[in-house]
């Protein structure tokens, strides 16, 4: 498999969110604004790529019995870097994302990719796979937050373009709409791409 194939497979065909239903927590929590989604997505992509690289690098030296713990600690180290970076350079976003940056550690996507891909493949392939999975995740986050921000606040990336004539849907800023938007996305994608494959 070439690097491009690995990327496409991880980003779209086997997308973590809509195909494997992983990483739902943060996909729901940070999608009220597009800016938060983008920052969160990039953070996840960074930690996925580098933790995939590191885990794959030491995959032949890790005893099976402590594998999970080692992977978690590697992931945690990269997430700490993301967290410190956000605190230092984008403090307001770090405040808005709150605990969800730290929660990247327990995001199932990272563990899932580490187990499914990085534990078996070469470091560079794992890194490409991580970037792909992170890209697919960011893509989902941006779609959901686009709808939620436009309908709920009349803006895109904080830039308001809908005037006062647009009634703001305050439900879009609240928790339930996140569930509804994600399930609509699931519905659309499964109906369009996966139903025929199953038959």
């Amino acid at each position: 498999m070439t690097k491009i194939d690995i990327f496409r497979e991880a980003a779209f065909k086997e997308n973590s969110v809509w195909r494997q239903v992983l990483g739902i927590c943060s996909a729901l929590a940070v999608t009220n604004f597009m800016r938060n989604s983008l920052i969160m997505g990039l953070g996840v992509m960074f930690s996925l790529a580098l933790s995939g690289f590191t885990i794959s690098l030491i995959r032949n030296h890790t005893p099976r019995s402590v594998r999970m713990m080692v992977q978690t600690l590697i992931i945690a180290s990269w997430v700490i870097i993301v967290d410190l970076f956000l605190k230092a350079y984008i403090p307001d976003a770090s405040k808005q994302l709150g605990p969800y940056v730290g929660l990247i550690i327990t995001n199932c996507i990272l563990m899932g990719r580490a187990e499914a891909f990085a534990a078996k493949n070469t470091p560079l392939d794992s890194m490409v796979d991580g970037i792909g999975a992170g890209f697919g995740y960011t893509f989902v986050l941006l779609i959901i937050s686009l709808f939620r921000e436009v309908l709920g606040f009349g803006s895109v990336f904080g830039f308001t373009f809908l005037g006062d004539w647009w009634p703001r849907w305050s439900i879009m800023a609240m928790a339930p709409s996140a569930f509804f938007m994600l399930s609509i996305l699931f519905w659309y994608i499964h109906q369009k791409y996966y139903i025929q494959v199953k038959k």
């Binding site: 399930s183 699931f186 519905w187 659309y188």
Partner: peptide, 8 residues
């Protein structure tokens, strides 16, 4: 609906 089964 088929597309909604499972997680949807």
């Amino acid at each position: 609906p088929a597309g909604l089964q499972g997680a949807g």
